[in-house]
């Protein structure tokens, strides 16, 4: 059998690494490392976008690669690092509840999303469609990470990783979203980040901690 062309091989490798990073995020305890993982994920995403752009020659993909680089590899991680320093949660670690169990659920999610992606991928006509399953898996794994985390900071990181997954999925299925949508999403993420940043300070002022289980005391009915 013929091996795939090199760029598709590289893309597949990128996709697999993205998946691996998602799993590492599930198991990672330190907030700082989480942010670094996120930056790495962004970098991979940027690389994958360039690969696809080279293959298809679609100019807007270069733009979105640049956007990814600026926002997800440099901008947001820097912002998050600054936030971490300002909030003084640099050494914050949180217990991951039963990491093996979480990973096992993650594995089932991967099976589910791979199975889900196969009929979908059959509909798509792109050369990159085989990675759609990985994109779905990255989204759902980020969701799982958000569920299992209790610190506000790690939830935000997981949220951003979910956005990465969405972006990657769009690229696998249709060579990226229209530029307008992409810009809109990027702006949204940026604004959301700023709002959340403000929010963190408020939460900490209120509860002296970024642990979200304090929010449970906000309900009205006991």
């Amino acid at each position: 059998m013929n091996p795939l062309p090199l760029d598709l091989q590289l893309l597949n490798a990128c996709a697999s690494l993205l998946l691996l990073l998602s799993f590492s995020m599930l198991a990672q305890r330190r907030v700082v490392n989480l942010v670094n993982l996120l930056a790495l994920q962004g970098a991979l995403l940027c690389f994958a976008t360039v690969l696809v752009a080279l293959r298809t020659g679609q100019a807007h993909l270069y733009l979105s690669a640049a956007l990814t680089l600026a926002l997800k590899v440099i901008g947001l991680p820097l912002l998050l690092h600054r936030l971490i320093r300002r909030l003084g949660v640099y050494w914050d670690a949180e217990p991951v509840i039963n990491p093996s169990g979480t990973m096992l659920i993650g594995l089932l999610i991967v099976v589910f999303s791979f199975g889900l992606a196969q009929p979908l991928a059959a509909l798509a006509s792109t050369a990159t469609r085989s990675t759609l399953g990985i994109a779905i898996a990255v989204i759902l794994l980020a969701f799982l990470a958000m569920i299992t985390r209790r610190k506000a900071m790690s939830q935000v990181v997981a949220f951003l990783s979910m956005e990465n997954g969405l972006f990657f999925g769009a690229m696998s299925a249709t060579y990226g979203m229209p530029m307008v949508v992409e810009l809109g999403v990027a702006l949204d993420v940026l604004v959301a980040m700023l709002v959340l940043g403000v929010f963190f300070f408020q939460i900490r002022e209120q509860f002296d901690s970024l642990d979200l289980h304090h929010l449970e005391s906000l309900k009205e009915v006991e």
């Binding site: 795939l4 091989q9 597949n12 996709a15 697999s16 998946l19 691996l20 799993f23 198991a27 093996s100 990973m103 096992l104 594995l107 991967v110 099976v111 791979f114 992606a117 196969q118 085989s130 990675t131 399953g133 990985i134």
Partner: peptide
């Protein structure tokens, strides 16, 4: 070791998905 096991299974799944 559970991580190792998981990685191996993940490799299996990736193989099935990407069909290399």
């Amino acid at each position: 070791l559970a991580t190792a096991f998981l990685l191996a299974v993940l490799g299996l799944l990736v193989h099935l998905l990407l069909g290399d």
